[in-house]
């Protein structure tokens, strides 16, 4: 399964959500489907996408918050899973695309490549109430449909191929993205 397919499958569902992505390939794949004002791309600060998601989810309890994360980024901030579990906002879905790779920076193997490290088991051990490990597009769709229906903190680990877009670039300056995202939320209610 490819991450781009998963993001494409989710795209309609993301229309009303507050969406935070990690850097590089993941951000680009969402952006290429069509930027929306409710998307925030964290192009650096590895590990903090889920923390931003937590801050949003706690303060916007009536909005669905979706974080599109990566294995390398999560490994830089494993404590985040314990913080999510402790405060367990019911409106947060944390999707970790595990491509076993630091794809956006040369494609070096990450600690999950060999299969020794199991991020879903770590999320469960952290105390996240709903955790799904998915390896096919069908499983991913099922797990995400289930997560969107639930009123419960969810982590979905999606085992994906280490592939990304062949181009990078957005017509969106970084602070501009932040300002517009903030404004979108302000004008939403």
């Amino acid at each position: 399964m490819k991450r781009s397919e998963c993001i494409k499958a989710l795209y309609e569902e993301l229309e009303d959500c507050l969406v935070v992505t990690i850097m590089g390939a993941c951000a680009q794949e969402l952006y290429d489907l069509g930027h929306r004002e409710n998307f925030f791309y964290l192009q650096h600060a590895m590990g903090l996408a889920s923390s931003i998601g937590l801050g949003l989810a706690l303060n916007r309890p009536h909005d669905r918050v979706v974080v599109l994360d990566g294995d390398g980024s999560v490994l830089m901030n494993l404590g985040t899973l314990t913080t999510l579990a402790r405060y367990r906002p019911a409106n947060l879905i944390h999707i970790i695309f595990d491509n076993g790779s630091l794809l956006s920076t040369g494609g070096f193997a990450s600690h999950t490549t060999s299969g020794i490290t199991d991020l879903a088991a770590i999320a469960r051990g952290a105390g996240v109430p709903n955790v799904a490990l998915t390896t096919t597009a069908y499983e991913f769709m099922e797990a995400s449909a289930d997560a969107f229906e639930r009123n419960e903190l969810s982590v979905i680990v999606a085992k994906v191929e280490a592939t990304g877009p062949d181009h990078f670039g957005m017509d969106l300056k970084l602070p501009e993205n932040a300002f517009r995202f903030e404004r979108y939320i302000k004008e939403k209610n």
Partner: peptide, 18 residues
């Protein structure tokens, strides 16, 4: 938080949320 850097992210999320 478990580590202070997380709080930077949480604060950013709270800020976006107003």
């Amino acid at each position: 938080v478990a580590k202070e850097e997380e709080a930077v992210g949480i604060a950013a999320g709270a800020h976006f949320a107003g």
